[in-house]
Design a protein around this nucleic acid. Structure first.
Length: 769
DNA sequence: CATAAGACTTAGGAGGATCATT
DNA sequence: AATGATCCTCCTAAGTCTTATG
C-alpha cells in the first residue's frame, strides 16, 4: 500500500499536482468531527513534560555526519550537518508537593500462575442461582501448560475451593528476573474489618479466579454452556393511519420497504440524514427492499415525506416516558427475566455474565466521521446467520422454532459464544463475556503485567531507538522515529486501512506528509512538530511539540520529494514495527506503550498531586486531575455536554450566593464576638460558637462548590472513562485509595468495581506499577 | 512474503436511570 | 412531584494484533 502513494490528487490540500486519486479529498472539512480548540494542547504539554519517564536526555554533541542510504540504494544526499547541543527545551512544571512516599519499589506478584482445574461446585456470582443450568460433570483436566510470557515464574498450586483459608492465601510468585530481591511477604490480609458483615459475606462468595491457575495450552475453557442470543424483535408494521407520502401523495408501503423507511424516519432529526452520502446509500439500499411497483414509483428521496412516521415515533417515545409506575416496573421485570435467562453462561463451573447477549437490531449504519458507508442498511440477523460456540457435552442452545443455526461448533481456543457476519464491512461480530468474567479479567491483568515488564526495559529500548535515529538504513530510522512518537506521544500503531471502505483516519505508521508540519523555530522553541490528523473514531489529534534535533532532521529527510498525501513512513508499517518490538521484549507491541505510559503517568501524577492534608473531596479532585492528565495524553475526547455553558453558569451563581452567605456569616460572627467581649456571659459565648460553626460550614460548602466547578471546567471535553477502563492499571488506583483512606466507591462505580475485582482484592497500599 | 480473515480490545455516544433541586 | 443535571449501561463502531492462506 505504501508503494503507490506517489502521485495522488492533492488539489484540495495543496493545489499541487492533480491526478488520479480522490482518496483524500475533503478531509478535515467535516464540521462534525470535533475540532477541539487548542487550549488543551497547553495542558497536554504540561502533562507530558512533567512525566519524568519521558524526559529526553539532553544530548551531548553528536556530530552525525554519516551518510544515510535509502535501502533501495538511492543516494546519500541526506546528511545531517549541524552540531548540536540539543537542549531539553521542556520546561518542567514546578514541583508540587513532594512525595510523602518512601518510594521504595516493592515487589509485586505477577500473574503467572497456572490454573489447577480441579472441578468445583458451580459458584453463582450473581446472587441467585436459579438452577437453570445443569452442572457440568467433567472438567477433570489437570494441569494446563503455559502459553505466555509468564513462564519464568514458578507455578504454584492454588486450590479452587473458596473456604476462608483458601482466600487468605496469596498467590505469591515472585518474578526472579530482575534486580529487586526482597519479597515483601504479604502478610495475610491485615486490612481492617470495617465492612459490614453482610458485605463481607457476599464478598466471600465471589469467585476469586485470580487466585487460581491459568490454562497454558492455549485453550480458553473446558466447558461452555449458554442459551444462545436474543434476537431483535420482529418488525411491527405501522398502524394504517400513519402515512408515508411520496410526491405529496399518501402511499402504503410493503412491510419490508416500510421497515427500512422507519429506520430513516427515526433518524430524521439527526443531521446524518442531511448528508449526501448518507442519503445516497440509504436510498440505494432502501430500493433493494421495495417491490417492483414501489421501485418504479419511488425514484427520488427528496420527494419522500417521512414526517408522519417521524411524529409517530416521537409520540411513542413520549408515551413511553409517561408510562405509569406499574407499567415501567413490568418492563423492568421483563428485562430482568431475559437477563437471567440469556445473560449468563456457564464456563468452567462458574456462572458468568455475558457482555452483549442481544443481537444487533437492523437499522441504518452510522459510521463515525466521514464514513463512505453511512446510511447503508444493516440487515436483520436471522438464526441462519448465527454460529454457536459451546461445549460438545453442553446442552446446546435451541434455535427459535422453525429455524436453524448456521452452525454449531465447539472451539475452545476462542472466547466467543455466538458470532455472525455483518453485512456492511463483512466483518464478524461476536457475543462474548462481560469484563468482570474470568476470561476477560485474566487478559486484562496480563496486559498490565506486560506493561510493567516494559517499564523494566524501557530505558534500554529508548536508548536503542535513539541510536537508530542515526542508522544508515532508512527503514530503521523511520522505525525509530515512529517508535519515538508512539512512546512520547502515545500514538496508536496505525494499521493500514482499506481505502474507501472506512473514514480516512490514521495512526502513527500511517501518518501522511500532510499530517505534520515542521517548524525549525517557532515561539521561542526549536524543532517543533505540529501534528494535525484524524485518529480513531475521527477524533482529531492536534499537538505542537518540540522534538529532539535528530528527530526533526530525520523528519525533514522523510519528507523529501514527497507529496502531501504520501506516507510519512514509507518504509514502515505496523507489522514491521511490531516484529521489531517483539524482538526487544517478549510480548511487546505498539499498544503496550500506550498502556505503560498511561499507567506510569497516573502513578506519578498521583504522587505529585495528592496532598496528605487535603480533604477527601480535594483528594478526589487530585485523582481526577491525574486521570485527566492521562486522558489528555491519550487524546480521549468527548463532545462538550450540550448544556455545559448553562450548567456552568448556574454553578457559578451558586458559588456567588455562597460567597455572600459567607461574608454575612462572618459579619455575624464578628458581632457575636463583640457582644461576648462586652458581656462575657454564657449566652453570648454560645452565640459565638454557633456562628463560628456556621462560618465553617459555609466555608466547606463553598470549597466543595469551587472544587466542583474547577473539575467540571477542566473536564469539559475530556473523557476520563476510556483511560480508566482500558489503560490505567487498577491496582494503582486501589493502592491510592488505601493509602489515603478514600473509599473505592469514590473512584470506581459498581460496574468498574466488578471489572477490577481482582485488583481491588490484591493491591495493597504500597503497590508500585 | 503479502493479504485476508479472525479474534479481541478500545472508543464515544445515546438514552435511560438516578440523583439533586425546587 | 416535577424538572433538570449527571451518571451509568448499553451499544456497536473502529481500532490492534494474530493467524490462516495463497
Amino acid at each position: 500500500m505504501s508503494g503507490d502513494h506517489g502521485h495522488r490528487d492533492s488539489q484540495v490540500n495543496s493545489g499541487s499536482k492533480g491526478s488520479d486519486s480522490h482518496k483524500h479529498k475533503d478531509k478535515h472539512k467535516d464540521k462534525e468531527h470535533r475540532h477541539k480548540d487548542h487550549k488543551k494542547d497547553k495542558e497536554r504539554e504540561r502533562v507530558k513534560h512533567s512525566n519524568s519517564e519521558h524526559k529526553e536526555h539532553s544530548e551531548k554533541k553528536h556530530k552525525d555526519k554519516e551518510k544515510l542510504k535509502h535501502s533501495d540504494g538511492s543516494s546519500d544526499k541526506h546528511r545531517e550537518k549541524h552540531k548540536e547541543k540539543d537542549k531539553d527545551k521542556e520546561k518542567r512544571r514546578e514541583e508540587k508537593i513532594k512525595s510523602y512516599h518512601s518510594d521504595k519499589p516493592k515487589k509485586e506478584k505477577e500473574n503467572g500462575y497456572v490454573r489447577d482445574s480441579s472441578p468445583a461446585v458451580i459458584k453463582s456470582e450473581p446472587e441467585e442461582d436459579n438452577g437453570f443450568y445443569p452442572s457440568p460433570q467433567h472438567n477433570k483436566t489437570s494441569k494446563r501448560d503455559h502459553d505466555d510470557e509468564e513462564f519464568e515464574y514458578k507455578p504454584k498450586k492454588v486450590k479452587t475451593e473458596h473456604d476462608k483459608k483458601a482466600k487468605k492465601r496469596k498467590h505469591d510468585y515472585e518474578d526472579d528476573e530482575d534486580d529487586e530481591d526482597i519479597k515483601p511477604k504479604k502478610k495475610t490480609k491485615d486490612k481492617k474489618v470495617t465492612e459490614g458483615k453482610k458485605a463481607k459475606k457476599e464478598e466471600e462468595e465471589k469467585w476469586k479466579w485470580w487466585e487460581e491457575e491459568r490454562y497454558t495450552d492455549g485453550s480458553k475453557w473446558r466447558f461452555l454452556e449458554h442459551k444462545g442470543p436474543v434476537f431483535a424483535p420482529p418488525y411491527e408494521p405501522l398502524p394504517d393511519k400513519v402515512k408515508f407520502y411520496y410526491d405529496g401523495k399518501a402511499m402504503k408501503l410493503s412491510a419490508p420497504a416500510e421497515e427500512v423507511a422507519t429506520f430513516f424516519a427515526k433518524m430524521l432529526e439527526h443531521e446524518y440524514t442531511t448528508k449526501d452520502i448518507f442519503r445516497k446509500n440509504f436510498f440505494k439500499d432502501w430500493r433493494k427492499e421495495m417491490t417492483s411497483e414501489e421501485k418504479s414509483k419511488i425514484t427520488d428521496l427528496n420527494k419522500c415525506n417521512f414526517s408522519e412516521m417521524s411524529e409517530y415515533f416521537k409520540a411513542q417515545s413520549e408515551a413511553r416516558k409517561q408510562m405509569s409506575k406499574e407499567e415501567k416496573l413490568k418492563i423492568k421485570e421483563e428485562n430482568e427475566k431475559t437477563l437471567q435467562e440469556y445473560g449468563f453462561c456457564i464456563m468452567d463451573n462458574h456462572k458468568e455474565r455475558i457482555g452483549n447477549f442481544r443481537i444487533e437490531p437492523p437499522g441504518l449504519f452510522r459510521g463515525r466521521g466521514d464514513h463512505p458507508k453511512m446510511g447503508m442498511l444493516k440487515r436483520r440477523i436471522r438464526p441462519e446467520d448465527i454460529i454457536i460456540n459451546c461445549s460438545k457435552d453442553s446442552k446446546h442452545p435451541k434455535p427459535p422454532p422453525g429455524s436453524k443455526w448456521k452452525e454449531v461448533r465447539h472451539d475452545n481456543k476462542v472466547t466467543w459464544l455466538v458470532s455472525w457476519t455483518e453485512n456492511i464491512q463483512g466483518s464478524i461480530k461476536y457475543i462474548m463475556l462481560n469484563p468482570s468474567s474470568r476470561i476477560k479479567g485474566e487478559k486484562d491483568w496480563q496486559k498490565y503485567e506486560t506493561a510493567r515488564r516494559l517499564k523494566k526495559c524501557v530505558d534500554r529500548i529508548r536508548s536503542q531507538y535513539r541510536d537508530d535515529w542515526k542508522s544508515k538504513e532508512m527503514r530503521i530510522r523511520q522505525r525509530a522515529v515512529a517508535l519515538y512518537f508512539i512512546d512520547k506521544l502515545a500514538l496508536r500503531a496505525g494499521n493500514e486501512k482499506e481505502e474507501g471502505e472506512t473514514a480516512d483516519t490514521v495512526g502513527c505508521c500511517s501518518l501522511r506528509v500532510e499530517h505534520i508540519k515542521l517548524y525549525p523555530k517557532i515561539d521561542e522553541q526549536e524543532y517543533v512538530v505540529e501534528f494535525d490528523f484524524l485518529g480513531k473514531d475521527s477524533i482529531r489529534y492536534y499537538n505542537k511539540i518540540p522534538v529532539e534535533k535528530r528527530v526533526f532532521k530525520n523528519l525533514q529527510l522523510f519528507l523529501e520529494n514527497k507529496q502531501p498525501e504520501d506516507d510519512l513512513f514509507d518504509r514502515l508499517n505496523t507489522s514491521i514495527l511490531n516484529k521489531h518490538l517483539q524482538e526487544l521484549m517478549d510480548g511487546l507491541t505498539a499498544k503496550v506503550f500506550r498502556t505503560y505510559n498511561a499507567s506510569i503517568t497516573l502513578q506519578q501524577q498521583l504522587k505529585e498531586l495528592t496532598c496528605p492534608d487535603d480533604s477527601i473531596p480535594a483528594k478526589i479532585l487530585s485523582y481526577n486531575r491525574a486521570n485527566r492528565a492521562v486522558a489528555i495524553l491519550c487524546n480521549h475526547q468527548r463532545a462538550p455536554p450540550k448544556t455545559f455553558e448553562k450548567s456552568m453558569q448556574t454553578l457559578q451563581t451558586k458559588i456567588d450566593e455562597k460567597q455572600n452567605q459567607l461574608s454575612t456569616a462572618r459579619k455575624q460572627l464578628k458581632s457575636a464576638k463583640a457582644d461576648h467581649k462586652a458581656s462575657h456571659d454564657d449566652k453570648s459565648k454560645k452565640a459565638v460558637e454557633v456562628k463560628r460553626k456556621a462560618v465553617q460550614r459555609i466555608e466547606e460548602q463553598l470549597m466543595k462548590l469551587q472544587v466542583q466547578a474547577t473539575d467540571r471546567e477542566e473536564n469539559k471535553q475530556i473523557a476520563l472513562g476510556t483511560s480508566k477502563l482500558n489503560y490505567l492499571d487498577p491496582r494503582i488506583s486501589v493502592a491510592w485509595c488505601k493509602k489515603w483512606d478514600v473509599s473505592i466507591e469514590k473512584i470506581y462505580n459498581k460496574t468498574q468495581r466488578e471489572k477490577f475485582a481482582w485488583a481491588i482484592d490484591m493491591a495493597e497500599e504500597d503497590y508500585e506499577f
